[in-house]
Nucleic acid binder design. Structure first.
Lengths: 155, 155
DNA sequence: TAAGATAGACAACGTCGTTGTCGTTAATAG
DNA sequence: CTATTAACGACAACGACGTTGTCTATCTTA
């Protein structure tokens, strides 16, 4: 099939699609009162979850060291998205929990992502978008949390 | 349409698709004699092009400072992928050119990307893959070089 | 010919990841 | 019950990679 585009376009388009969605998410989040939210924050907070977690556990989930997870938690704490408290049943542990502001950010993110998805559906069609998602599921790993993003792209 | 997946899955799948392709590219590049190639390298070398370029120019193309571009060039030089020579018509400038090894890496990358694309086509179908690419083109910017990747994801 | 702009080198710094170490607290083996 | 081992979190040092600022050499232009 000589009409096929060169293979290198596919990864670029995938990445650009990702970028577009994430950039628009954060532009909208900024408008809705979360100007300091960064791409990693929502992702990390999803990993923290409503149950809370610890630095070590979070590091394992994200595939980074506990120290790196700890620093990210500090940053989120400074922004008021999470808070830490000692675990009464194990005084070594410090449980990290989402604050109301953190939950608000996640709720808004979910709604904004739904809106963005609807906009894509309006452009390429409902059916085609569902097919696109179905096809991507077939060629990507099922586990969605181990992005291993940090530093992965580095030279 | 209550059957629709949550909107946040779409960016994750796009990113995971990108990751899968890039990771497999580098696994195969390593097998083919380029074990030190990193995700950014091929991209930067594409930006350098067959004509060669300078650090300042490359920085502008990639959207980073000339110093950052210079450091990347140094790294590629150490790996033997590029070489620098003074421009005879402007002795301030140092032209960065791909070495044969660098060209070899790009050629292999292109072939590997084509193979990977063919593998995706085998999984989801020729027609569906073409549709996927067509659809992504409709929702992503046309300019493919300003990824602005470095540090973009940072917390 | 003098003034301004540009290329590239060098240094200092910030961010964010890493590993290593250490004190405290739990869990467990004897 | 006690002594060893394991786990959590904090601190420090370091490396990778980006930034800005400064400096010299060279080209361009008024």
């Amino acid at each position: 099939m000589s009409n096929d585009p060169p293979g290198f376009e596919l990864p670029l388009r995938l990445f650009l699609g990702f970028r577009v969605l994430i950039d628009e998410l954060h532009a909208e989040l900024a408008r809705q009162g979360h100007p300091h939210a960064r791409p990693m924050h929502g992702f990390v907070m999803q990993a923290i979850g409503t149950e809370g977690t610890t630095a070590v556990e979070l590091g394992r989930t994200l595939g980074v060291s506990k120290q790196a997870a700890g620093k990210t938690i500090e940053a989120l704490e400074r922004l008021g998205y999470v808070e830490r408290a000692r675990d009464p049943r194990d005084t070594r542990r410090k449980i990290v929990r989402l604050t109301p502001s953190g939950v608000d950010m996640l709720v808004r993110s979910a709604r904004i992502f739904d809106d963005l998805r609807a906009r894509w559906a309006a452009v390429i069609g409902d059916e085609r978008l569902r097919e696109l998602e179905t096809d991507l599921r077939k060629v990507t790993p099922p586990d969605v949390f181990r992005l291993d993003v940090p530093g992965w792209f580095g030279a």
